[in-house]
Design a protein around this nucleic acid. Structure first.
Lengths: 246, 246
DNA sequence: CCACTGGATTGACCTGCGTCATCACGAAAG
DNA sequence: CTTTCGTGATGACGCAGGTCAATCCAGTGG
């Protein structure tokens, strides 16, 4: 079951068992990828999309001088570049951050689903719009929060998403990101991210150790980053998925 | 013909005449809206979507202290909140900036299209993903550009979009935005936007007069904002739409 | 054992942008 | 005509975060 986390507990878009089976059947290949591998380049035509099964991936835009802005971070269960199906060509690069396992779904298979399964199509569409909602939260973060707020917001968001994926207990989670990665997410320099992390540590809000993030006070951290999780469209976990809360 | 600008010259998503007729038939109402009117609130269920026929609209997120971050600006031809169809509830507010004319499309009609018209459904999906691509360009703008670059990028983008809609000749266009609006788009203060506009004026790049934007040197302005229009997915105008270039 | 490398940490210094005024101008209202 | 209000324009001043540079530490490969 490579798709068990896809659309898990997403409000109004949970997959029915037969829908899950259809996606599962659309997978033609499972691939394991090394950390820091680029899997899709801006401007190149794509005819497959990638469902992230394990690991962390990212999407980013490079500027003229080689500076990088991350536009998305993906956790297990995300259909990383499903939007490449309608768009065919991407406007950004896609890469792994950590080692990752991905499932490959050819667009031809998705085409078939679109013809026969309008309700499942709506859920796939929903999945790409959820990414767009996260984009908007990131715009808010970059446009209106100071440095500490941006980092607090990102860590709160990531905690919520990983919790939904069953990969955080709400206080600690593994995340293979460096402080430089954080700086490319939050529109800061790595030096300043370091100062922010010290402050969060001293205020007993959060400890960041690259391999492990420990949130000491989730409520205060969320408040510091004005994080409100509505845009993640999360339902309370379904009874069926309770057991994955370990 | 209220839909003539919808998906006009969008790469790989142009509407066939019969598809355009289907959308046209899905419209149940034409509404004119006063400037600065909120038409949809975050968190409220929606059962219609709004196609912008004339005027400028925006989508925005408010912070705790009432500061506002715009997450999108819409020009005629945009299906402003089509994403409300799969999502049902929005994560942000939608409002007019100028006086506007909109076409209302009930979700029930879109549902019917989804069942019968997979190819048209793909194009509707595409339209929402184009908005997401613009979100990403805005993330780049906020994360990696300085104040002058951000304004230059936004004005270059808006010029390109209005040109495609036949509402800019590439050098001058009407845009009912104040400097404060610009500041909420670019994550700056209105005071600093004013300083930026002066600089752009002095460098002979652009003159901004709220009602009228005059781009004196489109190439230099785009360079200053690192604007590359790929993410707008524009084709060269089709022969059929040439006449709208006045 | 040591050399090397990628990340984290810290300090000194500087600047772009925010903040807080104030003032000018034109449109609309009384 | 005067008042008001929204927008634009400018100046003085302060600070958050950028820049540059050095140091430290944990792997890890030889």
């Amino acid at each position: 079951m490579f798709t068990e986390r896809f659309l898990k507990d997403k409000r109004g878009a949970r997959l029915e068992p037969h829908e899950r089976a259809l996606i599962e059947a659309a997978i033609t290949e499972i691939r394991t990828l090394a950390p820091r591998t680029t899997v899709a380049h801006a401007g190149e035509p794509l005819d497959v999309s990638t469902l992230l099964v394990e690991g962390i991936m990212s999407r980013y835009i490079d500027d003229r001088r080689g500076l990088r802005q991350l536009v998305a971070v993906h956790v297990p269960g995300d259909f990383v570049d499903l939007h490449a199906f309608p768009l065919k060509i991407l406007d950004h690069d896609v890469a792994t951050m950590t080692a990752a396992t991905v499932a490959i779904v050819p667009h031809a298979r998705l085409e078939a689903i679109m013809h026969d399964q309008p309700e499942l199509t709506r859920k796939l569409w929903f999945s790409t719009l959820l990414d767009a909602a996260i984009h908007r939260a990131w715009l808010f973060r970059l446009g209106r929060l100071d440095a500490v707020g941006r980092v607090a917001h990102f860590l709160s968001e990531t905690n919520a998403r990983l919790m939904s994926a069953g990969l955080s207990d709400g206080r600690r989670f593994a995340l293979g990101l460096t402080q430089t990665d954080l700086s490319e997410i939050c529109g800061l320099t790595n030096v300043h991210v370091n100062r922010v992390m010290r402050q969060l540590r001293e205020e007993q809000l959060c400890i960041f150790r690259s391999s492990l993030v420990e949130i000491l006070d989730p409520v205060k951290l969320a408040a510091r980053g004005q994080f409100k999780p509505d845009y993640l469209y999360l339902d309370p976990p379904s009874p069926a998925s309770q057991e994955s809360q370990s």
